[in-house]
Design a protein around this nucleic acid. Structure first.
Lengths: 197, 197
DNA sequence: TTGACCCTTGATTGAACGTTCAACTAATCA
DNA sequence: TGATTAGTTGAACGTTCAATCAAGGGTCAA
């Protein structure tokens, strides 16, 4: 059986919102990419914003299986998993010539006054990402001193990724991403050294 | 003499692009806020994008006099100047109930395939900000070891600000901003301690 | 007084937008 | 067979958008 209409719509919207943003993606864009007629789209989704909600839910549910698992496959060390995750964003930037960054970050800054449901889903996406990094840090807890704030460090990691993507795209220079990651590495090593040394 | 038409247009556009973003701000919005008629706007600016260019030039030229100088007035220590700058973004977030973030960061992520002239102006804005922070670090060079990468640290500072704004807005929780700044403080102190200790 | 120049006016244009809807098809069940 | 339901179709609608333009006001030098 071919992918059903609803799935095709959401997948097309995920791709286009990622590529062009929400406002710049028209319903017509989504229709032509998904090969669906407008009536069918509005049969499943009352409006454009409901489609955005479905997209954000799909992203959230995909963070584990579609983002983390492929990256972490074959990597056991929890700290290296964090830097491998950052490396996957780096790779996307380079391979797509700075076209694809982080879809959630872009949407979070593009939508200036989002509906509460949209805002909460953006937050849920960040939360899933931060939570995964925080868990990695927790698995390496023995390398850090007792009071280390893993939550804050995980949030900083998100900032390094989002900021690195933003700068690298704007300057069209991956060095901005690499330097941010290098600073994070220094910071993490510094926090770890206090204990292990 | 009253402010001339051209100035009123640019100031209205700066405000609206900051508040609502580029795509969501219509020419009609700018006209009604600046109390100008469409013909006058198009007399000075061939199109909407030319207005964006003017706005980005105005932001760039205002980073020193309109952003840094007010914040740094009365603060001499170069490291404290950096954290005071971050504090000014924190204050804007809290005082406007997460309405106003960083206008450049929002535009940089909103505009997915900007014209080269726009991209270069976004980069010029970031560059001015990073450069100012880098200069502060340079003034405190004696507190760091010789090989310290001030450029990378300044870029990380921008990431902490932009990422902090993004997270605080999305979660509607200033704690995300504060924790990022606290991590940066720890990192800076750690780099400084190696030398001064 | 004249005319050239700079700037303003606001109705108007046509394209693009999100959305609607009545008609249609195909499969399911009584 | 006939009724019901689920899903599809694409033309059409009203709105909003960026952009245009013919007309004209204000100023100043000649």
């Amino acid at each position: 059986m071919a992918k059903d209409t609803c799935t095709r719509i959401v997948e097309a919207a995920m791709e286009l919102f990622w590529l062009k943003g929400y406002g710049s993606t028209s319903i017509a864009d989504i229709l032509s990419r998904s090969q669906v007629n407008s009536g069918s789209l509005y049969y499943f989704f009352p409006g454009k914003q409901d489609l955005l909600v479905a997209v954000l839910e799909a992203y959230r549910d995909g963070i584990g299986p579609a983002l983390l698992e492929p990256v972490w496959n074959g990597i056991d060390d929890p700290i290296e998993r964090i830097f491998a995750l950052l490396g996957s964003y780096r790779r996307a930037l380079v391979e797509t010539d700075y076209t694809y960054g982080c879809p959630i970050g872009s949407l979070a800054l593009e939508l200036h006054e989002p509906d509460e449901s949209v805002r909460l889903l953006l937050a849920a996406n960040f939360e899933a990402w931060i939570g995964a990094v925080e868990q990695c840090l927790g698995m390496a807890a023995d390398r850090f001193s007792a009071g280390t704030d893993f939550r804050a460090l995980a949030e900083l990691t998100l900032n390094v990724m989002e900021g690195g993507v933003m700068q690298a795209r704007t300057f069209r220079d991956i060095g901005h991403f690499d330097r941010a990651v290098a600073q994070l590495r220094t910071h993490v090593d510094s926090l770890a050294a206090r204990e292990s040394a």
